[in-house]
Each structure stands twice: as structure tokens, then as C-alpha cells.
């Protein structure tokens, strides 16, 4: 761990007038790490990513990205990072190739390098056949793939992705995720991404959960789930009233109402499952759900909301 962090952020914050979009964010991302930044809409994810990409000046704190300060050395930082935004940045009136060429030229690549990289990128994303087609005719998934190709064309050491799979179908989402994982594994690219598809954050090395412009949790997905520390036992029934006293009796815990019937929370579901067997005989269905990242998320941000 002697390596300098790819992203080092201390007390980073940003206000819009009197509104605090980002309060104070502290985090370090290691080179080659796959880092997820999660939070509800309006939590400050996009504002944070924009500050890290040198698009927004922080109101306070500091951030070093790829070794450079985002305010002092903005141009150096921009040279080393790639950014894929929530919405497409492609020019719909240009063809796939023209869009990519525009981009390579902006990064000062020579014509020859530019051609080689464009060929490679189009091949990688299976867009060779659409090379000379205008982007306007592309589907959402193809546009997103091309956008991603654009983001890595200049071989950035850090790639920022703001909701990279928003609006894509599951197949396209899987392909993009597979590609991103390959990118970190094979090229050692650091990935910093925001998403609110929480199940997608599972392959991240670490995730930070933000709410109200602050990090409320930071760690490996498995560790965060462990921290939540409970399994959920669901009792599916349409006669919930009847089962409340029986569940209370059998487990000594207070059942919670849920859409499907009742739920109880325990540290280890396997310990109490046998005692719930009699319920199944009366027509209830019993199931166990291990905590997901989503539960962690709702637990953390939900508590914040109810304060």
C-alpha cells in the first residue's frame, strides 16, 4: 500500500447558494480499485463526481486525482481521466467513427494512433458494422457502448462513470459490467462509479454510501452487509392477523407487517427456522432473505430520513 492513492479526497464540499449539495466527503481510492459511490437521488453523487472531474470548483476541502489537484492542475487531471456521463455526450448528427475521431483529436492523438484506437474500440464493442452510421439511428444500448468506448479511447488511468447502466436492459447492463471488470483486471484502470442499481455494486471492491452530502458508510460490500447483521425471515400469508401471536410465541420476537404478510429479523435465520415449521402446515410460506446491499442502503439512508 505504499502506492499513492488514485483519488484522495479530504473535506470536499460544494454549496449552491445556501444549499449544501455536498457537505464534506473524505475518501481514498487505491489504484486499480473498483469503487462504487451509492446514494439516493440528490445525495450529492453527481456533484462529487463533477468536482473530481474538474468540472466544478469545490467550495471547500481538496481532492487529488491521478496525482494532481483538481483545482490547481485541472488540465493534468483531465489528461489522465476518462468520464462517462449519465446522459450521452455523443453528437447525434455525426457517425460513430466521426464521434470517436473528434474525441481522439481532442486528446491530441496523432491520426495514425487515432485510427488504430478507433478500430480497436469499435471492434471491442461490436460496433464495426455501424461505423459509418449516424449515432441518431443507434439504440440506447449502442449509444451507451459508444459513449463508454469514447471514455476509454485515450487510455485513462482513472475512469469516472455516472450511472453507466441507466436505462439499459439487463443484457446490456451485464455486458457493460463484464467489460468494466475486465478493464480493472487487465489494464489496472481505477473505476469510480455511481449507481443506484444496488445489486450492481456487489462486484465493487469497496462502496461508499452517501446521503445528504456525507459518506454514511464505507467498506467492502460483504462487510457492510455483515455490519447490518441480520437475516430476514418472511412469512407469506394473507392471514397475517392470525399469525402474529403465533410467531411471537414461537420466536419470542415481535413480527413486522409487510406486504406479503409478516417479517422478523434475527441474527441467524437457521437457528429459528425449525421452530417455524408448524406454520407451513397451516398454509404459510416461510422464506429467508440474507441482507443485500439494498437493505444496508435503506437501513442507513432510511434512518437518516426518519431523524
Amino acid at each position: 500500500m505504499a502506492q499513492a492513492p488514485a483519488i484522495a479526497v479530504a473535506g470536499l464540499g460544494r454549496d449552491y447558494g445556501r444549499v449544501r449539495a455536498v457537505d464534506a466527503v473524505d475518501l481514498d481510492v487505491q489504484p486499480g480499485e473498483f469503487f462504487g459511490f451509492l446514494g439516493p437521488n440528490g445525495a450529492g453523487k453527481t456533484t462529487t463526481i463533477r468536482m473530481l472531474c474538474t468540472l466544478l470548483q469545490p467550495s471547500r476541502g481538496e481532492a487529488r486525482v491521478a496525482g494532481g489537484d483538481v483545482v490547481e492542475n485541472a488540465l493534468d487531471v483531465r489528461r489522465k481521466i476518462g468520464v462517462v456521463f449519465q446522459e450521452t455526450t455523443l453528437d447525434l448528427d455525426l457517425t460513430a467513427e466521426e464521434n470517436l475521431r473528434f474525441c481522439t483529436r481532442l486528446y491530441g492523438l496523432s491520426r495514425r494512433d487515432s485510427k488504430a484506437r478507433i478500430d480497436e474500440a469499435l471492434q471491442l464493442f461490436g460496433l464495426e458494422e455501424r461505423r459509418h452510421a449516424r449515432v441518431r439511428s443507434f439504440s440506447g444500448g449502442m449509444r451507451r457502448a459508444l459513449d463508454l468506448a469514447r471514455g476509454i479511447l485515450h487510455r485513462p488511468s482513472i475512469l469516472f462513470l455516472d450511472e453507466p447502466t441507466l436505462g439499459l436492459d439487463p443484457g446490456q447492463r451485464r455486458r457493460i459490467w463484464a467489460f468494466l471488470q475486465k478493464l480493472t483486471r487487465e489494464h489496472g484502470t481505477t473505476l469510480f462509479l455511481t449507481t443506484h442499481y444496488l445489486e450492481e455494486a456487489d462486484p465493487c471492491d469497496r462502496v461508499a454510501i452517501v446521503d445528504h452530502g456525507r459518506i454514511v458508510a464505507l467498506g467492502e460490500p460483504a462487510e457492510l452487509k455483515r455490519r447490518l447483521g441480520h437475516d430476514r425471515v418472511d412469512v407469506r400469508t394473507d392471514r397475517a392477523e392470525e399469525f402474529v401471536p403465533r410467531l411471537r410465541e414461537l420466536t419470542g420476537l415481535e413480527p413486522q407487517r409487510a406486504q406479503h404478510g409478516l417479517s422478523i429479523f434475527v441474527d441467524d435465520a437457521s437457528a429459528i427456522l425449525p421452530s417455524l415449521l408448524p406454520l407451513t402446515a397451516d398454509g404459510a410460506e416461510v422464506g429467508v432473505t440474507r441482507p443485500t446491499l439494498e437493505d444496508v442502503f435503506v437501513d442507513l439512508t432510511g434512518r437518516e430520513v426518519s431523524l
Binding site: Q256, A258, H260, F265, D295, V298, D299, G302, R303
Partner: peptide, 15 residues
């Protein structure tokens, strides 16, 4: 928070 819900939805936050 707007979340892609897995069926069935549970009021986990309150519980």
C-alpha cells in the same frame, strides 16, 4: 430513495 424494488417490497427501514 428511489430504488429498483425486488418483489415484494418491505418496509425494512421502519422495521
Amino acid at each position: 430513495p428511489r430504488l429498483p424494488r425486488r418483489a415484494p417490497a418491505l418496509p425494512v427501514g421502519d422495521a
